[in-house]
């Protein structure tokens, strides 16, 4: 099961689902809808947090939060 935290820089994936249902509500409100493409843009120097681009927005989220977003493949 691949998640957003497994992406490499500039690699993209399509959101399939979520492992954390409560967190998923917040992520969806921020634009992370299943079927949308997400690209990993930046990683902070200590490996955490990550910055992703999704649906035209740039979001930053902690590694554990990124790990709750399942992507295709």
């Amino acid at each position: 099961m691949r998640t957003v935290s497994d992406l490499k820089i500039l690699e993209s994936g399509t959101i399939k689902g979520f492992t954390d249902h409560q967190l998923s509500l917040k992520l969806m409100e921020m634009g992370c809808i299943p079927g949308t493409e997400v690209v990993l843009e930046l990683v902070a120097p200590l490996g955490d947090p990550l910055a992703i681009r999704v649906a035209g927005y740039h979001l930053s989220l902690r590694k554990e939060e990124a790990a709750s977003i399942i992507i295709e493949g």
Partner: peptide, 11 residues
């Protein structure tokens, strides 16, 4: 309250 970090990086 559950803490979320998810934050937007505005242009």
């Amino acid at each position: 309250q559950r803490g979320y970090f998810v934050m937007e990086l505005p242009g």
